[in-house]
């Protein structure tokens, strides 16, 4: 039965013939239409962003998840293989090594990469002269392409005529094998990564530091607080939110370390710098096993997702307390 349009409501009810207010459904539709028309440009722009995100971010993620459970050769239709790709990863002796190495990199990167930019930002904030010069100097490495940074440090780390050993020698310390030893290779990579990336985080910390009202420091000084007390009781609490967000971002970024081991060590010596992403890369682009590579990326996604969830929950609970 065709639906009765609200504008065709029966008039023979004996009601007076004055203008009747439209029923609620009509009002809602009209309002919606007007709202859509008013915001059409905004919807158009939003649609563009949504389409781009859907095609270049969400679709690859969904495809990656599907690939984790498939065997593909890009010629025949994909074959569903259940958890075979995951089983293959768990059977690979390098799988556990890659995770341990990545966690090691993240831990050292947090020690170095979290503290160094913060301390640098505090020092820059205290500077009275040549502020611009030092800010540019700290930020400069960020502007270098990552591969250039890696090549530059390969030269610095050269165990023969390298700059790093020359520097050690200048202060009377013995030479180090740097990248050529499984005991020092990972730390050497963290140093490169910290040097290359600390510019951005330093600037963010610096911006946060400059929002701290000067009165707080003044009253702390009047109360007799020294430099470290001011840092501990004023600076850190005032920048806590920025510190928490950057810690989260840094863990997510360092767990995905790739360029440095790929260009500088190829995962060696003796697998000491094989990271999760480097192993994933090998599966995808050296072994052409995209199923296992996708399974590995799914595991990383889940691990980072769990970490981010737990971290946010903990920090929110602490903030509420």
């Amino acid at each position: 039965m065709p639906s009765l349009k609200s504008s065709e409501a029966p008039a023979s009810t004996g009601s007076p013939q004055w203008p009747v207010e439209a029923p609620p459904a009509v009002r809602t539709t009209t309002r919606l239409r007007r709202k859509i028309n008013d915001n059409l440009t905004a919807y158009g722009l939003l649609a563009a962003a949504l389409v781009v995100f859907a095609l270049f971010s969400w679709y690859p993620i969904v495809r990656g998840v599907l690939l984790s459970f498939q065997e593909v050769n890009f010629v025949d239709p994909p074959k569903w293989v259940g958890f075979d790709n995951f089983a293959r990863l768990f059977a690979d002796p390098l799988f556990a090594t890659a995770w341990l190495n990545t966690l090691q990199f993240t831990a050292i990167a947090l020690l170095l990469g979290f503290a160094v930019p913060f301390v640098t930002a505090v020092l820059l904030n205290e500077l009275r002269h040549a502020k611009a010069f030092f800010r540019v100097a700290v930020y400069l490495p960020v502007m270098l392409p990552p591969v250039v940074v890696a090549m530059l440090w390969k030269w610095i780390y050269n165990p023969g005529p390298g700059l790093a050993n020359a520097a050690l020698g200048a202060v009377g310390l013995p030479d180090s094998a740097w990248l050529d030893s499984s005991s020092t290779a990972m730390v050497s990579l963290v140093i490169v990564s910290t040097w290359a990336n600390m510019g951005s985080t330093t600037l963010i910390y610096l911006a946060a530091l400059q929002t701290i009202p000067g009165e707080l420091y003044e009253s702390a000084e009047l109360d007799g607080a020294g430099l470290f007390q001011r840092l501990w009781h004023v600076t850190i609490p005032q920048t806590r939110f920025v510190l928490m967000v950057l810690l989260l971002l840094q863990v997510v970024a360092t767990m995905q370390v790739f360029t440095e081991p790929y260009v500088m060590t190829g995962g060696g010596p003796e697998d000491s710098t094989v990271t999760v992403l480097l192993l994933l890369y090998r599966y995808a682009f050296t072994y052409n096993d995209f199923g296992s590579a996708s399974a590995m990326s799914l595991l990383l996604l889940v691990a980072l997702g769990i970490f981010a969830g737990v971290y946010l929950r903990l920090t929110r609970t602490r903030s509420e307390d």
Partner: peptide, 28 residues
């Protein structure tokens, strides 16, 4: 067969011998 994966595993042996003076060949 599966040459690239074998090469990746054997890379490690070469690295051990050439970068670690105390590397044990049997273990590698």
């Amino acid at each position: 067969p599966n040459a690239q994966q074998i090469y990746a595993a054997l890379d490690n042996v070469m690295q051990g011998v050439l970068t670690n003076k105390d590397a044990t060949v049997d273990h590698l």
